[in-house]
Design a protein around this nucleic acid. Structure first.
Lengths: 194, 194
DNA sequence: ACAGCCATGTAACTTGTTACATGATTTT
DNA sequence: AAAATCATGTAACAAGTTACATGGCTGT
């Protein structure tokens, strides 16, 4: 839920047509979020359905301008002014994957960590080596620098976390954490297989 | 794309029925990813459709066991053994939001950063204060500790990034980065509004 | 003429997610 | 008897994503 609000925030600056929205989005995000043009039109349809934008008639060039509504404006401003709530729940594939790897018998969690660590470090180096200008001249460069910084920070955090996880796992004998299936789960019937 | 593979990885340990899969998933992730039971059945249907699991007949207790197929096994092992590819693209709502905020005229990007920073720090404190045991006794605790660590690392990275972003923005006069809509975008026609 | 970009759309699909219906069994 | 839990499902929706069709305009 991000493309939606992004388009809304752009439309808050004034009416745009679909193709234009795409290039605005691209410029303002340093082209870091590849956006299929089709998705713009999809999203606009959904925004219109929800009463957040209204579709104008095509102008003399055939451009179909969309205008933000009052409800849309409220939504856009609320998005920008309130922090993103990550909730108290995870939605991180890697974290869940490792938690599973660490508790599933027969899975070498340390190997999972090492493989990921290698990939993450490589990614980090790519990002860092990508020549991040300390001073971003154009707005496009600023946007890109911000986003790349975010990726770098996230990759660093990932590596740190992986190292911590490796330590946690090494602190105790591996088998100690492996959980067989359905220890005594089904209270009213046992699988024939066990 | 994570629930799917997780269920597959669990099923790689042996056949399970839906409700059982849910509790296995919960235990092995420290209950950090709240999973509606209905989603289990949905996902199982999709896995079956894709030939990754096969549905057995109900046993005497009415339990419908699902068994992983060879293709499913391959998929599960591949998931566990290969690192997660974050791609060279962002899919981080916050990064995109800030990039937009920094380039949209009339948006106080510094305020966005400060609001988010406050929320992120608060979240970080909640996570750190949640009494993270240095030594996790049970597998459930280990899983939870790993996931909470991931959230902590991510939150720390977020704060660091926000501070860097604030610096970047402070380094230059605010207005310098604001991009009006469609500077000279449409090459074959100009909006009547401009 | 032809390639390539501009521009609008449609249809389909993926994963995640929720709300709801239904009934059996177990606990209080 | 009532409440809680176990258990299986269905239907619908959200948001992202892609592939494709279609046509106009532009530069070579």
């Amino acid at each position: 839920m991000s493309v939606r609000q992004s388009l809304l925030a752009i439309l808050d600056q004034g009416p745009c047509y679909g193709y234009q929205l795409r290039s605005e989005f691209d410029r303002r995000t340093g082209s870091t979020w590849p956006l299929n043009v089709g998705q713009i039109y999809n999203t606009l349809d959904r925004l219109e359905r929800d009463g957040l934008v209204s579709r104008g008639a095509a102008d003399e060039h055939g451009h179909v301008y969309f205008e933000i509504t009052d409800a849309g404006r409220a939504e856009a401003r609320s998005w920008l002014s309130s922090p993103i709530d990550r909730g108290q729940t995870v939605r991180d594939e890697l974290a869940i994957k490792l938690a599973l790897a660490a508790t599933l018998p027969g899975v070498d969690a340390a190997a999972v960590i090492q493989a990921q660590r290698q990939a993450s470090v490589a990614r980090l180096q790519t990002l860092q080596g990508a020549g991040q200008p300390d001073d971003a001249g154009t707005p496009e460069e600023l946007a890109r620098a911000l986003v790349v910084d975010a990726m770098i920070c996230a990759a660093e955090a990932e590596v740190r976390w992986l190292d911590g996880a490796a330590q946690r796992l090494a602190a105790r004998p591996r088998r100690a954490y492996e959980l067989a299936l359905s220890s005594e789960r089904p209270r009213r019937g046992r699988p024939a297989a066990s």
